[in-house]
Design a protein around this nucleic acid. Structure first.
Lengths: 147, 147
DNA sequence: TCTTGATCCTCTAGTCACTAGAGATATTAG
DNA sequence: CTAATATCTCTAGTGACTAGAGGATCAAGA
């Protein structure tokens, strides 16, 4: 199969054109072949890497984790335990996020239940938000990831 | 109680100093009283609003939702159904995020289980990430919030 | 062959919700 | 009086893109 332009690569991988260029800029894909008129050309291996990046991003891996995995792929003879570690770390993170969101859901539900849609000056939602003491769940442990 | 400086306000509300200034910049808290030497002074009502903002942020409301709620608080005679609506919209969003993360968790788990930590060139994690076809869960519906 | 429209290029700036740092001034404790 | 701490404003950086300007190139139809 011949090489394709960025527009075609975008269609095939479902990654937007500026995003593909961005991935190149930050070094996730190595400098491309170009046409005489300086247009990027992508081969099947490039598309494959782009799909890898896209799927990993969809699964919530951050760019640095993806970069690490790509670097590891450059040494196929090594053990894949490092990749396994990255995936496990990410799974743990996902589990923490789920737990955080579920606590959040409970609190939101309780807050909404308490609201009988009267006047704002007797609104339970505002009350709860204003007075942290009314909050039964301690989510001070929550970090950015949960929010 | 007397008015306090930004450092004290920061301690009392557990919001970092630059963040308080940022909230002022974007108009979440109205222009402060200042000392003769131009230092910000916060009264109890200001602290109350800061706590409201902090708690709402912790619960994942975005700045615009918080701004809307603050504007509604300025009209305490109105019905609080709008606030209820904001909270319900947010709850629905939280539910979607939980569902997305749970799908993600299933996929990550399956991926990790399949990995027997051999050589990278036979790593199931990389395989799965490279070939979307192997993925049983369709998470194309997932938006940024889930990632 | 000319022209039109689609595609591509690079570069800069904007998004969100902060966070960090520079350099200057002011207050407080000893 | 001095030194340490707290505050001020302003600018720039974060992550992972997204949007737009302004210009070059390509493919297809007249």
């Amino acid at each position: 199969m011949a090489e394709v332009t960025i527009g075609m690569a975008s269609k095939l991988t479902e990654i937007k054109i500026p995003t593909i260029r961005y991935y190149e800029e930050i070094g996730l894909i190595s400098p491309r072949a170009r046409t005489e008129s300086n247009r990027r050309l992508y081969a099947e291996t490039d598309l494959s890497r782009l799909r890898f990046i896209r799927h990993a991003r969809e699964l919530g891996f951050d760019i640095e984790a993806i970069r690490a995995m790509i670097n590891l792929q450059a040494h196929p003879e090594k053990s894949c335990s490092e990749i396994d570690q990255i995936a496990n770390k990410h799974l743990a993170d996902v589990n923490r996020r789920i737990a955080g969101l579920q606590a959040l859901k409970r609190e939101l539900s309780r807050m909404i239940e308490g609201c009988n849609c009267g006047r704002i000056d007797e609104c339970r939602i505002i009350e709860v938000l204003q007075d942290h003491g009314q909050c039964k769940n301690d989510h001070s442990h929550m970090n950015e990831k949960f929010k």
